[in-house]
């Protein structure tokens, strides 16, 4: 990586998720890479959920930071393939999620099969409570306040919590 590309990475990695303070686009695996091509710094990102409004804000903030960093010509490229997966959230990202009271996602389901069998009953998932660590938890709703989160409650400490979905 060139010096400019490395600097661009550091600048880009400062963009945070508007919903979860401290969680950066590098932690989330949205920032895929920075490169220098023919004098232009190319920053590559991969969007998360199709309709996620936070993505637009993060992209705007990314452009603002990069253009204000004195890097010279910068281009932001969007790579759609391979699609974003929660498996790309880094260990640091997972630790930040847990610290924010959101249990981090487990391994994402295999996206490869030609057809996924329909789940006619909700599949219980083993999720540990981010507050007390107990595994005695239950899903209240697969869909939470944002596209990426489910609602859970802990039967041990009786607290509700959010879980970032595996996708």
């Amino acid at each position: 990586m060139t010096d400019r590309a490395a600097l661009a990475w550091n600048v880009a990695a400062g963009v945070v998720d508007p919903e979860i303070a401290d969680l950066t686009i590098a932690d989330l695996g949205i920032l895929r890479g920075t490169d220098e091509r023919d004098g232009t710094v190319v920053v590559t990102v991969t969007p998360t959920f199709s309709g996620c409004p936070a993505m637009t804000e993060m992209r705007r903030d990314l452009m603002r930071r990069l253009s204000g960093a004195g890097l010279g010509p910068v281009e932001i490229r969007t790579a759609l393939s391979p699609p974003w997966t929660s498996d790309w959230i880094t260990a640091e990202g997972r630790a930040k999620l847990a610290a924010a009271g959101i249990s981090p996602p487990g391994p994402a389901p295999d996206p490869a099969p030609e057809s996924v069998p329909v789940a006619l009953v909700a599949t219980p998932r083993r999720v540990a409570c981010p507050r007390c660590g107990s595994g005695d938890t239950a899903e209240l709703s697969h869909f939470g306040a944002t596209a990426c989160r489910s609602l859970y409650r802990c039967r041990a400490c009786r607290e509700p919590f959010e879980h970032m979905r595996e996708i």
């Binding site: 963009v15 945070v16 508007p18 401290d22 903030d61």
Partner: peptide, 9 residues
């Protein structure tokens, strides 16, 4: 950078 949210910036 980490102490400001996107909305604040």
């Amino acid at each position: 950078g980490h102490d400001v949210t996107v909305y604040e910036s």
